[in-house]
Simulated scan of single mutants.
Amino acid sequence: MIDFSLSFFAVALPAVLFAGISKGGFGSGAAFAASTILALVLEPGAALGLMLPLLMVMDAAGMRAYWRRWSPVDARRLVLGALPGVGLGALFYAAVSADGVRLLIGAISVGFVLWQWALKAGLKFGARPMGAAGGITAGVVAGFSSFVSHAGGPPAAVYLLTRPLEKTAFQGTTVLVFTVINALKMLPYGFLGIFTLNSLLADVILAPVAVLGTWIGVRLHYMVSKETFFALTYVLLLATGGKLIFDALT
């Protein structure tokens, strides 16, 4: 149950704005930070249910900005893999406790930061572009992680960063892929009781913030480097992901 208090909005407003900026301009790789942050003040299921409609609003806003500026081949591979990935995510969510979901969200958040640091330290991958098998595999992981934590961006990016795509085609492909994946999640979220009237009311209130964040992200896409944006993301994910792991284990 979401309590429409000042403390809730103090967390939710910047979290949703940040997610919109990420999805609008930086490949969705950091958008899942909003779910991680919200899971500090809400049950994990409530955080996921709150964010999905807002992510879909951001997808719709981003589609207009990047219409037909995607790679059809790469999008198709990721979506094909995402179909079974979403199904696996639904099975996992139904089988574990709230603390299990909280632990996974925290682990994905911290793991994302460690992976990025490993790359900066010299870890090499993608010397050659991944083929169809790599794209579909990345899609499975993206579908699963997107279902349980809205964190499908990083595995999709692992594949897309090996492809010969310029920055805007990368962004356009990401927007298209997650428009489809988020739509696929709607039905199982409903069956699992993740949506509530309470969370949908919060979505109505926060939807303008989601649109504003996406609008800002589209403009920052051409003005700010990914390195600058993700530096802030790493701090947020380490702090919030670490706290979720601690809460789940204790």
Rank of each mutant, 00 (worst) to 15 (best):
L249N: 00
G242A: 07
A142K: 07
G87M: 13
V41S: 09
V16N: 02
G25W: 01
V79W: 06
L249M: 08
I181W: 00
V96P: 07
T137L: 15
L91H: 01
I21R: 01
A121L: 15
V235T: 07
A31H: 09
I245C: 09
L104N: 05
V177W: 04
M58L: 08
A248F: 02
I216L: 12
V86K: 02
G25E: 01
A151C: 09
A61S: 14
K23M: 11
H150G: 11
V16G: 03
F125A: 06
D74M: 07
P53K: 09
T233A: 12
W117I: 14
V235R: 00
T214S: 08
I108R: 00
G139L: 11
A95T: 11
A46C: 04
P84D: 13
A239E: 00
T250Y: 00
F125V: 03
E227R: 09
L206S: 00
L78M: 12
G27T: 14
A94H: 11
P188S: 07
T179C: 09
I205E: 04
L80I: 15
F125I: 03
G106V: 09
S5H: 04
D74Y: 06
L88M: 13
A157W: 05
A61N: 08
A90Q: 13
R219C: 03
A15K: 06
G62F: 06
I2F: 07
G143P: 07
G153T: 08
I108K: 00
A75G: 10
K23W: 07
L38A: 05
L237Y: 04
H221Y: 10
L165V: 12
W70A: 13
A61K: 07
P72L: 13
D3F: 02
T233L: 06
M56I: 14
D247I: 04
K243Y: 03
G131Q: 13
F112H: 10
P53V: 09
G81V: 08
N182P: 02
L176D: 00
A33M: 13
L244V: 03
W70I: 02
T214I: 03
K243T: 12
A142S: 15
H221K: 04
S146H: 10
Q116R: 15
A34C: 10
H221P: 05
R163K: 12
A183Y: 06
L40F: 06
F32I: 07
I205D: 04
A156M: 14
W70L: 12
D247A: 05
L160M: 11
F18N: 00
R76M: 08
W117L: 15
V41N: 03
L38P: 02
G193I: 08
V148A: 06
L192V: 01
S109H: 10
Y222V: 09
F26N: 10
A121H: 13
F92V: 14
F92N: 10
A10S: 14
A33W: 03
D99W: 04
A94N: 11
F147A: 08
A65V: 12
N182T: 04
V79A: 10
N198D: 14
R76S: 10
T228G: 02
G153N: 06
M223S: 11
W215T: 11
K226E: 11
S71T: 10
F246P: 00
A157Y: 05
P164D: 06
L13G: 01
T179D: 00
G134W: 05
R128L: 14
A118I: 07
A133M: 13
A132W: 14
W115Y: 15
L184E: 01
A142E: 07
A142W: 05
F8S: 01
L40K: 05
